[in-house]
Nucleic acid binder design. Structure first.
Lengths: 124, 124
DNA sequence: ATTATACTTTCCTATTTGATAATTTATATT
DNA sequence: AATATAAATTATCAAATAGGAAAGTATAAT
């Protein structure tokens, strides 16, 4: 769970800026900006983008400010395939590359197959 | 004025993902996700962050996305784990199984290799 | 004690969201 | 082409949320 408000607050204080400055950059009432910092309101993507520019930072730096690294949960539609991918990552580089080359080839083959089916008149 | 919805749509289509996949990653109804792509709704920062991770991109890259290149060849190596899963799931069953058998074989080989290295005295 | 500044909170209503269902559109399959 | 199936869009509406204005704190300076 990310808390953009807290991050913005920390950053703003580090830069010793006033709320009303940031609020005006983000084009909102100071009272509403205050609510964002305290978590009572959500920032819009648009406002956060403006704030990031004002701070001289990227949006991502703000979103993930100082929260070490959470290893990004992989959500998958195909659990079996996911497990296989995990297994692939355990292979040594030589084997891994071999697998990748094979998959590349297969996909490319299928792409061409589809392309011909869709675009070329099959002679009867 | 930024139009995150359009950008998400373009990126999703380049990756040939379905709306419902992205919607589920972002933890929202497919119908509401559709509205985001068409600009009838706004993405929350939280949802956009999840989508960015799923796309293997930064939030900023999505916000300021301008399409440039549509790479032709498939290079699995460069993909994120999510995308690898998706690519593999696109293979037809025959190819998929072939890939799986190859991986199984490689893993088995490696397991035995490790086993011998750890348990059998190499004769000098 | 008064004034000023920085920020917070309350209150109200207008807008936006999320969930479901119903449609429309696209894509295969026969 | 007709039909089935899946994907995407639209409609609807109660409920949650956001925005604006004004009042309230807190602290500091005069």
């Amino acid at each position: 769970m990310i808390s953009v408000g807290k991050n913005i607050k920390k950053i703003r204080e580090q830069k010793s800026l006033m709320q009303k400055e940031v609020a005006s950059v983000a084009d909102m009432q100071a009272s509403n900006y205050s609510k964002i910092e305290s978590g009572q309101r959500d920032v819009s993507v648009e406002a956060l983008d403006k704030i990031a520019q004002f701070f001289g930072m990227t949006v991502d730096e703000i979103i993930h400010f100082e929260d070490a690294k959470t290893p990004a949960a992989v959500k998958v539609e195909d659990k079996t395939a996911n497990e296989k991918v995990h297994l692939i990552s355990q292979l040594d580089d030589e084997d891994k590359n071999a697998v990748y080359r094979i998959i590349d080839g297969m996909l490319t083959k299928n792409k061409f197959q589809t392309f011909f089916e869709q675009n070329i008149q099959t002679p009867k």
